[in-house]
Design a protein around this nucleic acid. Structure first.
Lengths: 129, 129
DNA sequence: ACTATATTCAACCTTGAGGTTGAATGATTA
DNA sequence: TAATCATTCAACCTCAAGGTTGAATATAGT
């Protein structure tokens, strides 16, 4: 019984990345530290909204905060991102390997069918896109 | 004014992947087509819940559906996944490149400071983790 | 001591995720 | 035809995302 493929870290990271505003914030932070107000400036939403986005990024460990007086400096933390990419690549490799194997299998079936002229298993309704 | 780094496709894909149940479903589907009931079996949640997850995966184009009579066959669609990984890798490259450049800059500063024995800019509060 | 600045807190709203149960629909099978 | 199976639809619940506005807090500048 699959209760959960418990990878809460990955859940959080992917969730945090699934928002264009947050991705833009990260992009900005890849150029170096920035304060909250600074990060908020380019956006059309309230400062508070950006503050919330930052808090969420922090919770996902994608961003770290250094408080200096009244100013909060945010910095990018790459680790979770690297981990997530690695995980995705692994899965991707796994998935495509399976897919390739399946393709091979189907081709082999087709060859066999052609040979015996039976033409069974003409898989109807193949998908595309 | 950054209204949105509009990549709705990526939003959807990342969001869809940010759930362990859905990732498990995809993993199952990488081994080949499956029907809804079949996909639902290993989970501890209701069939309806799984049906909803599938609908969401479909909406994100990660899964395609082929209806045959009363049975619905689901299949993995790799394209959005590949796209997303590619995008993430690009961003990762961009981010790390920037980070490396920044590190270089800081090191250079340190060297310069050491040379003139001034020791200014001793960046306090470096982050770790 | 004021005043302005940087940021969060608190309360509120709307929307959708993730789950439930029960009924409806449609295709098989006995 | 009647019963069974596969799936969705409909209605409901709870919770958190993403946004707003207005007040609170603390630091910095005058």
């Amino acid at each position: 019984m699959i209760t959960s493929t418990t990878a809460p870290r990955i859940d959080q990271t992917l969730m945090a990345l699934a928002d264009p505003t947050r991705r833009a914030i990260l992009k900005r932070l890849s150029a170096g530290e920035a304060r909250v107000t600074e990060l908020a400036r380019p956006f059309d939403i309230s400062l508070n909204a950006v503050s919330k986005h930052i808090r969420l990024l922090e919770r996902a460990h994608l961003v770290r905060r250094r408080v200096e007086g009244r100013e909060h400096f945010l910095a990018f933390n790459f680790k979770p991102l690297a981990e997530t990419i690695k995980w995705l690549e692994t899965q991707h490799a796994f998935w495509t390997a399976r897919l390739d194997a399946l393709e091979e299998l189907l081709k082999a079936e087709d060859r066999a069918a052609a040979k015996t002229l039976k033409k069974t298993h003409k898989r109807k309704g193949r998908y595309e896109d």
